[in-house]
Each structure stands twice: as structure tokens, then as C-alpha cells.
Simulated scan of single mutants.
Amino acid sequence: MPLREHLRELRRRVVLAAVGVVVGAIAGWAAYGTVFDLLQQPLVLAAAENDAVVSANFGGVATAFDMQVKVSLFLGVLVSSPWWIYQLWAFVTPGLTRRERLAAVGFLAVAVPLFLAGAGTAWWALPNAVRLLTELTPEGATNFIDAQNYLSFVMRLVLAFGLAFLLPVLLVGLNLANLLQGRAMLRGWRWAVMLAFLFAAVMTPTPDAVTMIVLALPICGLYFAAVGIALLHDRRTDRRRLAEGLPRLDGTVPEGWTPAAGTRTPAA
């Protein structure tokens, strides 16, 4: 596919994904009150445990309106996740065979639960993070947290972990499209583990190592699962290519193999 066609396809997928997010945001607008109460729960718990004043502060005339718009868009991203994940997958893997597309559809069904599991994991860690961070407030001081900054903090945490849990699915998609080999993913496992722990440490600003480890281990496990699936796919693809008279994906061939017939020549 020419570069211009790729760009057109990318624009088409982005527009379709954005339409899905807007539709989800309309539903999120109606659920704003309930969701905002849930967002305040970590602040309420932190205030109760620290015996201090901790609350969200609306510092401007239009802040409440901006807050509702942002929360609605945030909910739109979560609600429409099956739609925009499909658009992302369809752009990454446009050249799959019919059989590979059927396998991809089955694996795509795992992507949405993984994204939601990552978002749920971040939500689980949020109260602990808010409690520990607000404990640093000096005695006698009042911690009025800017509502928009607090929402940005929550959105970054939730979406970052959702996308981190989704990354292995994208790696498998690149492998199914023969753009990334399983051996390359396996060689980079040390970097992957280090980045997973670094990501967990940065995104969970808490001093305890337990939370960081609990968040990093699932990401590492998903990465190695993606590596295993990619290696199995590469093995099947290599066998098919050799049978068709083509070299392996990495350009190597077995000893005694002839390109014309795709078979081994008898040993001398």
C-alpha cells in the first residue's frame, strides 16, 4: 500500500475512533454526577484517615463546566474502547489473510478486557496514592486540590495503565502482520521488564514497593504471553514459507534447502 493510501487509511480510522468517543461522551455527560461522586471518594477517604481538610476546589467561573466536559470525554474513551481498539487493530493489521483475520478477531476479544483490567488496576491503586500523597500536607494546613489537576492526574493514571495492558495486543498484531518477529521481542525482554517497573514506579507516586510490584508484574506477564504467541506464529509462518519455496522470515534457510522446490537436497 502506498504512503498516501496509508495516510488516508489512518485519517479514516482516526475519524471513526473520534466519532465513537464523542458518542460515548454523550452518555458520559448524563452519568457525570455519579462518576464525580466516585472520583471524590479517594479525597473523602484521605480526609477521614488523615483527619484533615482535603477536597476538590473549583477555582473559576467556568471550571465546573470544563470539569464536566473533561469527565464526559474521559468516560467516552472508556465506554467506546471496543470501537477505537478495533479501529487501531484494523489499521495495524490491514494485510492479514482470511485465516489470520479470524484468529485476530478472537484475540481482539481479549484486548477490551485487558484495557479495562488495566484501568481497573489503576483505579484500585488510586485511593492509596491519594492517601499517601496528602499525608505530606503540613499540620494545620488545608489541602484544597484543584479539581482539573486532580482529574488530569486520575485520567493519566487510568488511561496509562489501560494502554499499558493493551500494548501486548498491539505487539501481537504487528507480529501477525509480519512487521515484528517474536525473536526480536524475546531479545528485548530485559528492556521490557525494566520499562514495566519504571512505568509502574512513575505512575504510582507512592513510597511503598508493594504497589509498584503488584502493578508491574501483570504488565510483564502480558508481555511474555505476547512473546509466546508471536514465536508460535513465526514458527507456523516459517514452515509455510519453506513449503512454498521461500526463506524464513529472518531470511535464513535450513541446510540443504533449495529455493526452487522448498525441500532439502539429499546429503552427499
Rank of each mutant, 00 (worst) to 15 (best):
T263K: 11
L39A: 06
D37W: 01
E244A: 15
A48T: 13
P113Q: 09
V169T: 13
V77H: 03
E255C: 02
L186V: 07
P247C: 10
A260K: 02
D37C: 02
F144S: 06
A47K: 01
F91A: 14
P259V: 07
V61L: 07
F36H: 04
A31W: 13
R187I: 08
A230V: 08
G20C: 05
L167C: 10
E135F: 02
C220T: 12
V61D: 15
V61E: 11
D37L: 11
T265S: 09
P254W: 08
S152I: 00
P207L: 03
L45I: 01
S80H: 09
G59T: 02
P266Y: 14
N178R: 09
L73G: 03
L73V: 09
A56V: 08
F144Y: 13
L136Q: 06
A117C: 10
W123E: 13
Y86W: 15
G28F: 12
A48M: 05
L166K: 04
W123V: 13
L179T: 07
T204C: 10
P138R: 04
S80P: 08
P254R: 04
L163Y: 13
L10R: 12
L159F: 11
A177K: 07
R131G: 00
I219L: 15
A201M: 12
T93D: 14
P254H: 07
A201E: 01
V112I: 08
V154M: 08
A230C: 10
A25L: 00
G256C: 09
R190L: 07
N143Y: 05
L195W: 13
A119G: 13
M67H: 12
K70D: 00
A230Y: 01
A52P: 03
L96T: 08
G24L: 07
E49C: 04
D208H: 11
L171D: 02
N175E: 00
D208Q: 10
R98C: 05
R235W: 05
A52M: 13
A30S: 06
N128W: 14
N175P: 11
D51N: 15
G24S: 11
W84Y: 03
P205N: 09
V14I: 14
L242Q: 09
G256V: 04
V71Y: 03
A260V: 12
H233G: 07
G140D: 12
V110L: 14
N50C: 04
A261E: 11
V210K: 11
G221I: 12
V53Y: 04
R239C: 00
A260W: 01
L73E: 05
N128V: 02
T206A: 12
L217Y: 04
T265I: 02
G106R: 15
L3M: 08
R248M: 07
